Computed example of a mutant assay.
Amino acid sequence: MADRPTLVKPKPYDHSKSTIENALELTELSAIGPDMFTNTRPLWHPPGARGIYGGAVIAQCLAAAQRTVPSNFTVHSMHCYFVLAGDASIPVMFYVEHIREGKSFATRTVQARQRGRPIFTTTMSFVRENSGGSKTIQHAVPLPSGVVVPSDSITEDEEGEGSGPFISRRIEILNKESKNPHEKRTRQWIKARGRISEAGGHQAHLSALAYMSDSYFIGTVSRIHGIWRHLDAPAEKQPVGASDADVPQLGMMVSLDHTIYFHQPRKFRADEWMFTEMSSPWSGDGRGVVQQHMFASDGTLVATCFQEGVVRLKQDPVPASKL
Rank of each mutant, 00 (worst) to 15 (best):
R4S: 10
T6F: 15
T19E: 15
E21M: 13
S30V: 07
A31G: 07
I32M: 13
T38D: 15
N39C: 09
R41C: 13
R41D: 10
L43Y: 08
W44K: 05
W44M: 04
R50K: 12
I52C: 15
V57Y: 12
V57M: 13
V69I: 09
N72V: 14
N72T: 13
F73H: 05
T74D: 01
H76K: 10
L84W: 04
A85H: 03
A88P: 01
E97V: 05
I99S: 05
R100V: 12
E101M: 05
K103S: 07
P118S: 04
T122S: 13
V127K: 03
E129T: 09
K135L: 04
I137G: 05
P142L: 11
S151Y: 12
G164M: 09
I167V: 07
R169P: 15
I171V: 07
E172N: 08
K176E: 15
I190F: 14
Q203Y: 13
H205E: 05
A210S: 14
Y211W: 10
S213F: 04
G219S: 10
I224K: 10
I224N: 08
L231V: 15
S243V: 03
A245S: 06
D246E: 12
P248Y: 08
Q249L: 11
Q249M: 12
H258T: 00
T259F: 11
I260F: 15
F262R: 00
F262W: 04
P265M: 09
K267Y: 13
D271S: 04
T276A: 07
W282R: 14
G286K: 11
G299T: 00
T300A: 15
L301D: 10
A303R: 06
V318D: 14
